[in-house]
């Protein structure tokens, strides 16, 4: 157990599936050799196959404290990162040749079923679920690694794969029930979200959080009573871990999504939300019922003109306050100033 734990809360009611987080992470961390297919941060439409495809059926994690065998996702599960015939298409190929992915049938990428979801029109439903490494309190990856190449930082609980020690045995990939570990074929090592530790070390929030235009990400220490994380996770209890039954105690939490009311045959609202509650329960556990009820109540307070600290936190009028102590501007570090030629 680390001394302190940083955590992230994502409010799914504010997630619009724009993937700015995914791009922010991609451009900062995973453009090197062997990383083409890596998206340490992903956003998928739920219900859906997710990234890697069907990850929820891949095992891992713990049951009754016992590690569970898991499937080891491969590049195909994560979705191919296609290359394209640009040169042929624009310079010298047969006139009118199609720009297309190389390598035959493209298969399905990491986000192929975007905006599909489940149910039958007009009672269908979907929402967006952004995911990254959960930096668990009880990390299955760390415990599975025979080389002890995975550390949980003492000072903030960030879980990191030591790339010098990693030998690419990929037990971590199997053991992680969230399947957020990628394998770098070119380097023969496993890689995953580093929770932007170089940024956090300098007081700057994670790229995925700070670049999120939906403003749904909160970052901070779980034990900081004044920070939004503590209030959302502990004080109001509206932020829940994903699949708590996986037994790893994630430190990424979600405010579950509200949805429009279903209609009956007369077009009248049934009061039943478009997203089935048992589906949400399967993702976030039984607490999801009371959380949704609380969100509805607190919103109603605001609607009547009453104060609600919870709504104020989730609204995030001053965006920078979402990041607790990690509120420094990236440009302010290392003394690099704006240069105007």
């Amino acid at each position: 157990m680390s001394k302190r734990q940083v955590a992230m809360v994502m409010d799914l009611n504010k997630c619009i599936g724009c993937q700015t987080c995914t791009v922010a992470c991609k451009t900062l961390w995973t453009r090197n050799e062997g990383q083409k297919h890596m998206l340490w941060n992903t956003v998928n439409t739920q219900p859906g196959q997710g990234t890697p495809h069907n990850w929820e059926k891949m095992g891992g994690g713990f049951r009754n404290g016992e590690p569970q065998p898991g499937h080891r996702p491969g590049v195909g599960d994560f979705g191919k990162a296609w290359d394209f015939n640009y040169k042929e298409a624009f310079h010298g190929g047969e006139p009118g040749v199609r720009l297309a992915p190389l390598g035959g049938e493209p298969g399905q990428g990491p986000n192929h079923d975007e905006d599909v979801g489940g149910g039958t029109y007009p009672d269908n439903y979907f929402f967006y679920l952004p995911r990254l490494c959960n930096h668990c309190t009880h990390p299955a990856c760390l415990e599975a690694c025979p080389r002890k190449a995975i550390e949980k930082r003492e000072e903030d609980g960030i879980v990191l794969i030591n790339e010098d020690h990693c030998r690419g045995f990929r037990f971590c990939q199997e053991a992680c029930p969230y399947k957020k570990i990628y394998f770098n074929e070119a380097r023969g090592i496993s890689q995953k979200c580093i929770f932007c530790f170089p940024r956090l070390d300098q007081g700057v929030a994670n790229a995925c959080a700070r670049q999120c235009p939906g403003r749904l990400r909160f970052v901070g220490y779980l034990d900081d009573p004044d920070g939004p994380i503590h209030k959302l996770v502990h004080k109001y209890g509206v932020a829940l871990p994903l699949h708590p039954e996986y037994g790893t105690e994630p430190n990424v939490y979600y405010v579950p999504p509200l949805s429009p009311s279903k209609h009956d045959a007369d077009g009248k609202p049934t009061g039943e939300m478009q997203i089935p509650l048992d589906y949400l329960e399967s993702l976030f556990g039984k607490k999801v019922h009371q959380v949704l009820a609380l969100l509805i109540d607190e919103r109603e307070k605001n609607r009547k003109g009453e104060k609600s600290e919870l709504m104020d936190i989730l609204i995030a009028r001053e965006w920078i306050k979402n990041f607790g102590p990690f509120d420094k501007h990236p440009r302010s570090i290392e003394n690099i100033k704006v240069v105007v030629k």
């Binding site: 993937q19 998206l39 990491p110």
Partner: peptide
């Protein structure tokens, strides 16, 4: 290519 890889090519 980045955008196509992240959705559909």
């Amino acid at each position: 290519r980045l955008m196509m890889r992240m959705h559909r090519p």
